[in-house]
């Protein structure tokens, strides 16, 4: 088991042999940069979907995703595989998104634009059941930090240990946050149905 240490020196996550395949790909990519493609293939969909869930516009999502992977590729020779690759990659992603939002704020774009785009895209692509639609709306009313937790878990499909590393939290704290959030959403959804 490998421990992941955060900025303050605290162990925030651990990883097990389930990550062996990713470890192997990282080693290969570190020996031969051509092999970075394997990591790209492994993460492109999850990173894109995560980004899209944040910005809601295809063009922006593609631009930001491109920047994330180009930055990751350029920085990869200096990446030290002591922690979790996904945490490193998603830290880059979150930084890129942070910059994107700061730029957006300056441009004074309608704040609803991204949200509307997200709604439109969702409605176009998926024939949502009513319950799923309500749940989707409920999630959008959650505080930013809780929305982020859900995105990382269900859109980026990250493990608790990986999320913990990204959020600088302990793994058990992340689990607890998510389970409680699930329960709260369930109750809220039931209230809606009643």
């Amino acid at each position: 088991m490998q421990r992941i240490v955060n900025k303050g020196g605290a162990i925030v996550a651990s990883k097990d042999s389930g990550d062996a395949e990713e470890d192997r790909l990282i080693l290969l990519a570190q020996e031969d940069p051509l092999q970075f493609h394997a990591l790209y293939d492994l993460w492109i969909t999850r990173v894109y979907q995560y980004v899209y869930s944040r910005v809601g516009v295809q063009q922006d999502a593609e631009d930001i995703t491109s920047q994330i992977f180009l930055s990751a590729y350029q920085a990869f020779p200096r990446y030290q595989h002591k922690g979790v690759f996904s945490a490193w990659l998603f830290t880059i992603a979150r930084n890129q998104l942070k910059r994107f939002y700061r730029a957006q704020t300056w441009r004074n774009l309608p704040l609803e634009a991204a949200e509307q785009g997200r709604r439109d895209a969702g409605l176009e692509q998926v024939d949502q059941a009513e319950e799923i639609e309500r749940l989707s709306k409920l999630i959008r009313t959650l505080p930013t930090e809780e929305q982020e937790l859900i995105r990382l878990r269900y859109i980026a499909e990250l493990k608790f240990s990986q999320i913990a590393s990204i959020l600088n939290r302990r793994e058990d704290a992340v689990k607890k946050m998510l389970y409680r959030l699930q329960e709260r959403l369930q109750k809220l959804l039931e209230v809606h149905y009643e």
Binding site: A121, I139, I155
Partner: peptide
């Protein structure tokens, strides 16, 4: 349901 409400509503990359 959470996955359907989140990942299910998020398009795949082109």
């Amino acid at each position: 349901k959470l996955r359907a409400a989140t990942k299910g509503t998020t398009p795949l990359p082109a």
